[in-house]
Every structure is written in structure tokens, then in C-alpha cells.
Amino acid sequence: MTSTREVACLHLENLELVMVVDCFGDHRIVEVNLPHPPEIADLKRLTDVGRQTILSDLPRPFFRIDCPGRFLLTGIIGDPKVRFTLRQAALTKAPKIVSQAVRELLNLKRKGAKR
């Protein structure tokens, strides 16, 4: 990311969320190292998805998933590092929104949730 810098690192439910300043000087970007690399099937679990692009023909398939009102999620299939670019309206709830999306993505249960 151009001219971004890490400003905070949150540990939330065993996830490391790295908040970085984007090139507008805002905290719109959250980078996450997932516990395991996402597969195409994982992407289908995300809810409230708007536009979804998966360049699956590439040797390293790139995905770009837009969730209106919340974020743009980008990453590479097989690479655990993904990036959330948040919408303005979602900035104040960034950790919650990102951790919820990661749980959806990886089909993780919330800690303490009833089975």
C-alpha cells in the first residue's frame, strides 16, 4: 500500500488486525493475517455481498469482494494476508465489522457462542 503506515495492531478473538493509514490519511484499511489461506469456497460464505470479482484464471487467483456499506475485501486465493478497505460509514466499527467478516469467511464460531 502506498504511503501507508501501521498505526495499531489489535488482537481480537485470536485474529491480528493491523490498522494502517491509507493514502488519504484515514484509517480505512485493515490488514488481517488469516489463520489459514482462503479458498474460493470460503468467499461464498460472506453475506451481503454486492459485486464480487474472482480472477480465477490467474496463477495466483485474485479476488475483490465489495460489500456495500461495509468494505472492499481483496486478496489472493492461497495467501492468508487479506485487506479490508472500509467505507466511511463503517470506520467507527472497523474491528467489529472485520472480525465478523473473517468469522463468516472462515466459518468460525464466535468465542462463547452457544453451540
Binding site: 500500500m1 490467474l58 496463477p59 485474485f62 481483496t74 489472493i76 495467501d79 485487506r83
Partner: peptide, 14 residues
């Protein structure tokens, strides 16, 4: 920015 991006990593790096 392009050369440091995820898009570059996916499309061009290979």
C-alpha cells in the same frame, strides 16, 4: 503503488 499491490502480486509477479 501498482508494483507493491496485491493486484500486481496476483497478475504480474508470477
Amino acid at each position: 503503488g501498482i508494483m507493491l499491490s496485491q493486484e500486481w502480486e496476483a497478475v504480474v509477479t508470477p
